Simulated assay, not measured.
Amino acid sequence: MKPVLKEQILTILAEIPPGRVTTYGRIATMTEGATPRMVARALRELPSGHELPWFRVITASRRLADHGGADEQRRRLIDEGVAFDARGRVAKERLWP
């Protein structure tokens, strides 16, 4: 991945406000050529101890991606007031931007 794309992804990630979520695809469309998979890869490569709100990024179906940090992601979103419906989806109203 080009460094400029990674920088764009991380800049957008830092802008997601508390209590809101966005999708891998939405972040990708805000860049100059990244794909949703590239966004996911950039998030997987975040260094430990970073302050970026990776947990505010969900799938296009408004669910959590299936990954090792999903339980922590769910907990952190709930702590910010984000609720999940019976099917594990976040309400459309919580999507940013």
Rank of each mutant, 00 (worst) to 15 (best):
T59H: 00
R56Y: 08
A40T: 01
E72N: 14
P47M: 00
L64N: 08
A42R: 00
G19I: 11
S61E: 15
G49D: 00
R74N: 14
E72L: 10
A70P: 01
F55Q: 12
R20V: 01
R26G: 13
S48W: 07
R62C: 05
R63L: 08
H67C: 11
V57K: 01
D71F: 09
R26V: 02
A60M: 03
H67P: 06
R37E: 09
T22K: 00
H50M: 04
P53T: 11
R56E: 04
F55I: 02
G68E: 10
L52A: 10
E72Q: 04
R56V: 14
V57F: 11
A40N: 01
R63N: 07
E45V: 02
E72A: 07
M30K: 14
A42Q: 00
I27H: 01
T22W: 06
G68Y: 04
R56C: 12
W54R: 08
A28R: 04
Y24F: 15
P53V: 14
V39K: 03
P36M: 03
W54H: 04
T31Q: 02
R63C: 11
T59D: 06
P47I: 00
A60N: 00
G49E: 02
A42W: 08
T59Y: 00
V57H: 01
V57P: 03
Q73T: 13
L64I: 13
R63T: 15
T31S: 02
P53E: 11
R41A: 06
S48A: 10
A60V: 10
S61K: 05
A70L: 07
A70V: 09
R26H: 09
I27T: 05
R74L: 12
T31V: 03
G19Y: 14
P17C: 09
Q73R: 12
D71R: 15
G33F: 13
R41Y: 08
H50S: 04
R44P: 01
E51P: 01
Y24N: 00
F55L: 05
A28G: 01
Q73I: 10
T31I: 04
G69S: 06
A65H: 08
W54A: 11
P36R: 01
I58V: 15
F55R: 03
A65Y: 05
A65L: 06
S61C: 01
L64E: 05
Q73H: 13
T29R: 15
G68H: 06
E32G: 07
L43H: 04
R44N: 13
V39Y: 07
M30Q: 09
R41V: 12
M30S: 06
P18H: 10
P18M: 12
T35P: 12
P53C: 13
R26P: 00
G69M: 08
R56M: 14
G25V: 03
A28H: 14
R20D: 03
R56G: 12
D71I: 14
P17Y: 13
R37I: 07
P18N: 08
R44C: 09
G49R: 02
T29Y: 12
M30Y: 02
T22V: 08
H67G: 11
T29Q: 06
L64M: 10
E45Q: 10
Q73V: 06
R37Q: 14
A65C: 02
I27C: 01
L46K: 01
P18D: 13
